[in-house]
């Protein structure tokens, strides 16, 4: 952590039962999950028979081409969208409405323009009827971790897109949820900040071991962060392959040179090449029809 302080841990006021106790009952089971969007005459099959199991405390990354249904899968897990067929359960309980014991980072920051940075973060706890004054300190500490110290009083329109997304990340962490769903949280960040946020997120996760579902376009990022990488096929989204990552943690900057980093990266790249998601330039246009 950049600033030496640690916003989560045993003395954490926001943690309900200490750092590890909240993590049980967050295992996710997705079975034969399909989602079809119907609009007028058109029909979009976004997900097709997805099966997936994510253990409690596990860090899972999901990679796949644009439009393959990653965001849809996250919404279905969170209970924000009804499935067309199939089931999702969290901690053995069927998800049939919004699951609330979690933190979500959406693909867009979704900040409230009438609230400053600090108040946007605290929206999470206010909506949960939690008004512990210590939460303000925790919010400030977390904002400092993502490099937003001194910006607490700024309004969203005064921030860059990357800064807004970092506020959204803190908002998802403030109530110390046992489950984190993150939809391309670093998508709007520049390469440097992105690398730093990646390292910081791993550090936060190592300290509190949430169950994390992390959606990304970046194969590198997925491999560097996750215990397992779920590779999805082009639309309709299916689980193409699940790749276990066996890199020692913490995976700082050096991890990129590790053979256990390059191997899975090459492997996933191969999968995308084979599926026509990627193609090498020399062989001419070989883009798969979408």
């Amino acid at each position: 952590m950049r600033h030496g302080e640690h916003p989560s841990g045993a003395a954490d006021p926001a943690a309900p039962d200490g750092p590890s106790a909240g993590r049980v009952g967050t295992e996710i089971r997705v079975s034969a999950l399909s989602k079809v969007f119907r609009g007028g005459q058109s029909e979009t099959r976004a997900l097709d028979l997805v099966d997936l199991e994510i253990g409690a405390g596990e860090f899972t990354a999901i990679v796949g081409p644009s439009g393959c249904g990653k965001s849809t899968l996250m919404r279905l897990i969170a209970g924000l969208l009804p499935a067309t067929t199939g089931e999702v359960s969290i901690g053995g309980q069927d998800v049939s409405g919004p699951h609330t014991n979690l933190g979500i980072v959406f693909q867009k920051p979704i900040l409230l323009e009438w609230r400053n940075v600090l108040k946007n973060v605290l929206l999470q706890t206010e909506m949960r009827h939690r008004n512990d004054p210590d939460l303000v300190d925790r919010a400030r500490a977390l904002l400092a971790v993502v490099g937003l110290a001194g910006f607490e009083d700024r309004y969203p329109h005064e921030l860059s897109g990357g800064m807004q997304q970092r506020v959204a990340i803190v908002r998802a962490l403030i109530h110390d949820p046992p489950l984190l769903l993150m939809d391309e949280p670093f998508g709007a960040l520049d390469a440097l900040t992105r690398e730093q946020m990646r390292i910081d997120l791993e550090e936060l996760w190592l300290a509190s071991r949430q169950t994390v579902v992390f959606i990304t376009h970046s194969i590198d990022e997925a491999v560097l962060l996750a215990d397992r990488v779920v590779v999805m096929s082009p639309r309709p989204g299916r689980v193409e392959r699940i790749v276990d990552i066996d890199l020692p943690r913490p995976r700082g900057l050096a991890a990129r040179k590790h053979p256990r980093f390059t191997e899975p990266v090459d492997m996933i790249t191969e999968i995308f090449l084979a599926r026509g998601v990627l193609h090498s330039g020399r062989q001419g246009p070989k883009l798969a029809a979408t």
């Binding site: 924000l80 919004p98 609330t100 979500i104 867009k108 909506m127 949960r128």
Partner: peptide, 28 residues
């Protein structure tokens, strides 16, 4: 927008809370 409402629902907040903290200020 739908996403703001999704964020609100993911917190488990009730209708009144969502009205007071999100929909009313948004409509102002």
């Amino acid at each position: 927008d739908e996403e703001t409402m999704e964020l609100a629902r993911s917190t488990g907040a009730g209708t009144w809370m969502i009205f007071r903290k999100i929909r009313l200020p948004h409509a102002m």
